[in-house]
Design a binder for these strands. Structure first.
Lengths: 358, 358
DNA sequence: CTGAAAGCGCTTACAG
DNA sequence: CTGAAAGCGCTTACAG
């Protein structure tokens, strides 16, 4: 039965062999003609290309080519969230940007592997030449091990170091400690934390020792530890993600009781910090006069003006680039080394000494 | 030479055949044992799995499998921008979300094909089972034709209809017309447009007949036409993308001359509209008393409060879902039909009658 | 510059 | 339930 609508019936795709036959050359020659580089006479190449055009042949099948060559031209990007959530985070976008820039010489595509729980089948079964794990928890260890056994170069951006995975880390703990010390130097004592999700299953909650003990998110835990280095007893609130709205909700919770109000809030991301500031505005609490707020990341948050957030600027694009470069090196047989990145303290106008006690 | 650091030398990856040999079964049986579904006795399966473990075999090679099966488990997503820019747009994220939701039954990964000009090699050479074109211009026609010849099901979200591509469209023109009519009904006559990029090469500029004539971005052009249906002579400014900052810059330009100030601005996206409002705030122009502002998209812009933007809410997630469902159908041999989506007018508090003439 | 041959690693009818 | 065989569509040494 013909499919008249487009003139092709499934399964009847022409092959390189068919093209070769029609052009009156061998398979090898036809292949060479497409490869471009091979030693083929112009006349022959032309003949092959013409035959291809006549047969409506679109070029070598990528599947066959990747089996034969042992390369698929695909770099996997593994995130442990829904695609949408992952890329609402400007840091991840910056990472991706640096990454795609650095792997440009590979001429590879990025395969998004959003591991949302059940279906980590993708990540084990997808054909890729290398993979980047972005902020992944140890929960993925099995899948990661499978990739490793397959001989696929693995690079992680933050996250727990794992066997065979090259980790590009950030000074989450010491950077947060620095900003906490800044607050202490200003005289703050009642400090609260607005935290990133501690585990994969996300829910809003007061920070408790139990929650902290069970945490699996490296980044959140390290930043928490940094704050605790200076304010061991700081309370806080865990959010469901790095979103302005989440920061707002957390802050409303933390600022609810006027008698037990913190004088400073350490938010684990700039977006959360923006939400904290918004909540303060809504509650009529002046920032920084009555409440100091600090963030983390150094991303420009739209609509924060006239506030200039005191924060830690992390080299996100550069982290992505480093991961990308490492992949390129590994694929070329090299042995790149892990790198630790440093955040830079940015003093804005959202911190000040605490208000005098009433 | 052994690579002692990880105990494996490249090229020595075990194959299914090796596992079969060690387990004392045929290749077919070993394959069946991994496939899960096949009729294999538990004992045999166990034997195969054990042999695999002993050989450190991670499962069938996806490259070989996809050649043999004719499916790669990959759905391509083609955007005509850098990854970073593409996903700063909440609409594209929503699209992606709907898409990944709908193709879940395929258990496929999303391959990001960011066509940034030169390297459309990826898109022609990547192995994928289907592709979604997001807001692509006719410039990509060649690559798209190559995919089509390869028999890859093609679906587009907005963009010019092309041969063999199923387009899911939006009522860009009539929706914009509706919001323009709303402005006219309020009494506005001096209206300006803040436009999305009209062509792939982006630069900020006053809207001119030449620019408009050369435009290739379907969405921008249609929205422009909708505004022109009501205000044929409206001037405007073209931005480099749907970002708050771009809207701000455009508005500062349009509002610069106090004597030739528009009383209303039609922004082609909510992010642009947010930037327009910000510019108005900076210039001391009251919204909506002195300037009405409308957007398009219906995304929640962080930090816009207390403004509730008058806009057109488009069903972005639903569009992505429809595209995904179409792909699933096509891959199952079905013939889904194109769908046209409708935006919904949302009346916020950013429009009002124009100020009285001085 | 061109061709004959082998093989990348699997899966799938087909027999038994 | 298991095995022998063919073949997915290419690319790459190797000869000539």
């Amino acid at each position: 039965m013909n499919d008249e609508s487009n003139g092709r019936s499934p399964g009847a795709r022409p092959t390189l062999a068919a093209v070769a036959r029609r052009a009156g050359v061998s398979n090898s020659t036809a292949s060479l003609a497409f490869g471009g580089a091979g030693p083929v006479s112009d006349a022959t190449r032309e003949r092959v290309l013409t035959a291809a055009r006549e047969l409506n042949y679109a070029g070598p099948d990528p599947r066959a080519r990747s089996l034969r060559r042992g390369r698929s031209g695909i770099v996997g990007v593994v995130v442990e969230e829904r695609v949408r959530d992952a890329f609402r985070d400007p840091i991840k976008l910056a990472l991706l940007d640096g990454l795609s820039e650095a792997i440009a010489p590979l001429d590879a595509g990025l395969l998004l592997l959003a591991d949302t729980g059940a279906a980590s089948a993708h990540i084990e079964d997808a054909s890729m030449d290398a993979a980047v794990l972005i902020g992944c928890s140890p929960r993925l260890d099995e899948s990661v091990a499978a990739l490793w056994r397959r001989g696929i170069p693995l690079v992680a951006i933050e996250g727990e170091p794992a066997d065979g995975v090259l980790v590009f880390s950030l000074d989450n703990r010491s950077a947060t400690r620095a900003v906490a010390e800044h607050l202490r130097a200003l005289g703050h004592e009642r400090v609260a934390i607005v935290a990133l999700p501690l585990e994969r299953v996300r829910r809003r909650a007061r920070l408790t020792p139990e929650l902290e003990a069970e945490g699996t998110s490296n980044t959140a835990i390290e930043r928490l530890a940094g704050a605790r280095d200076v304010f061991p007893d700081a309370g806080g609130f865990v959010t469901t993600g790095s979103f302005v709205e989440e920061g707002r909700l957390a802050a409303r919770e933390l600022l609810a009781d006027p008698d037990a109000r913190p004088t400073a809030i350490i938010a684990q991301s700039d977006l959360l910090a923006a939400g904290v500031i918004r909540a303060a505005e809504e509650l009529g609490i002046a920032v920084p006069a009555e409440l100091s707020v600090v963030g983390f990341d150094g991303v420009r948050v739209d609509g924060l003006w006239p506030y200039d957030l005191t924060t830690l600027v992390q080299p996100a694009v550069e982290k992505g680039r480093a991961a990308g470069r490492a992949i390129v090196e590994m694929l070329a047989g090299g042995h790149p080394v892990a790198l630790a990145f440093t955040s830079e303290f940015h003093l804005g106008n959202t911190t000040a000494p605490p208000p005098p006690l009433p």
